[in-house]
């Protein structure tokens, strides 16, 4: 056991934690906004629903790694893309990773939100209507809060999955946690210790996240507190 090497490795890996968290946070935020849009589009019209179903089918049915490659290497093949206003973004590996991760989580997120919306009791909606709420107010005050609370446990798992998925960004030259681990391995030629250290850091991040989601669930469900189950 080479403690000096382990310490140095942990230190180098720790410096990559912000990149991993940033990737996860930005892509989950964009993905959540997209997911909400998709869920609303699905409820709006038949054509909208068909488009959303196709989107969800494609992004949930193929591996995220293929999606990352398709966006990163695939789009760069076309001159039209390279000359477009999007290229300054797509040129950066970071934005390609964000784009792929966000599009992917939006597909899963929209399904979770759909489940949440379906679970909103019809009675609550009727009560809102009776009270004379407009459609917008009804959504803002009743449907969305109830649906989000319902969807929170599943969405919490989705966030954990996203933190793990950021590791795939290492494959398109981003030096987040896994990318840094791979660099340390290629510098030191020692694999196991480095990957175990990286694994421990992911575990710690996800442990904290799980606790945070549980805490949020409890704050959002005040009536359930102190009730014996």
């Amino acid at each position: 056991m080479d403690l000096a090497f382990l310490g140095e490795t942990l230190l180098r890996l720790a410096s990559a934690i912000p990149t991993t968290l940033e990737l996860a946070f930005v892509s989950v935020s964009i993905g959540l906004a997209l997911a909400l849009l998709l869920a609303l589009l699905r409820a709006s019209s038949v054509i909208g629903a068909a488009c959303v179903r196709a989107y969800v089918f494609v992004f949930r049915g193929s591996p995220l790694l293929v999606q990352i490659f398709l966006i990163y290497y695939g789009l760069g093949q076309f001159d039209a893309v390279r000359e477009s206003f999007l290229w300054p973004f797509l040129r950066r590996p970071w934005w390609c990773a964000i784009l792929a991760l966000a599009l992917n989580t939006a597909a899963y997120g929209s399904e979770i939100i759909r489940g949440g919306l379906a679970a909103v009791p019809a009675g609550s909606i009727e009560a809102g209507r009776v009270a004379g709420m407009s459609r917008f107010t009804l959504y803002r005050r009743i449907v969305l809060p109830l649906a989000l609370r319902q969807a929170l446990p599943a969405y919490g798992s989705e966030i954990i999955i996203m933190v793990k998925s950021t590791s795939l960004a290492s494959i398109i030259t981003i030096t987040e946690l896994t990318g840094t681990a791979r660099q340390i391995v290629s510098d030191s030629f020692r694999a196991i210790e480095v990957f175990v250290c990286a694994g421990l850091i992911y575990l710690a991040i996800n442990f904290v996240l799980t606790r945070a989601v549980l805490l949020l669930e409890r704050t959002l469900t005040p009536h359930a507190r102190g009730v014996p189950r």
Binding site: K164, A191, F195, A198, G199, Y202, F207
Partner: peptide, 19 residues
């Protein structure tokens, strides 16, 4: 279950491959 669901699968593959 906690460990395997908490770390990226890519790392698990690297670990099995080298370890």
């Amino acid at each position: 279950t906690t460990v395997l669901r908490g770390i990226p699968d890519l790392l698990v593959i690297y670990l099995f491959y080298f370890g």
